[in-house]
């Protein structure tokens, strides 16, 4: 079952903490919504370091990251 983490507007490091919590539930794919390039890179780095695949889509100045195993 897919799950969505809406981390838009949250400051560092909350997007990463929320993504980690989502990963711990083990339900993939995980969609993470962020609205800054900083958060996009932080979430991407976290996911890569844990060995997940990351796809990024830009939507009107916001980013949708899809994490899959």
């Amino acid at each position: 079952m897919a799950q969505t983490v809406d981390a838009r507007g949250l400051s560092c490091p909350q997007p990463v903490i929320l993504t980690r919590q989502a990963i711990q539930t083990g339900q993939f794919p995980i969609e993470v919504l962020v609205d800054t390039v900083t958060s996009r890179e932080n979430v991407r780095r976290l996911a890569k370091s844990l060995g997940y695949k990351v796809q990024v889509k830009e939507e009107g100045g916001e980013f949708r990251l899809t994490l899959t195993k």
Binding site: G9, L10, S11, I17
Partner: peptide, 13 residues
């Protein structure tokens, strides 16, 4: 505090 859910809430465009 962060681990316990501390947050100042969202900012908006």
């Amino acid at each position: 505090f962060l681990k316990a859910g501390y947050s100042l809430g969202r900012s908006y465009k």
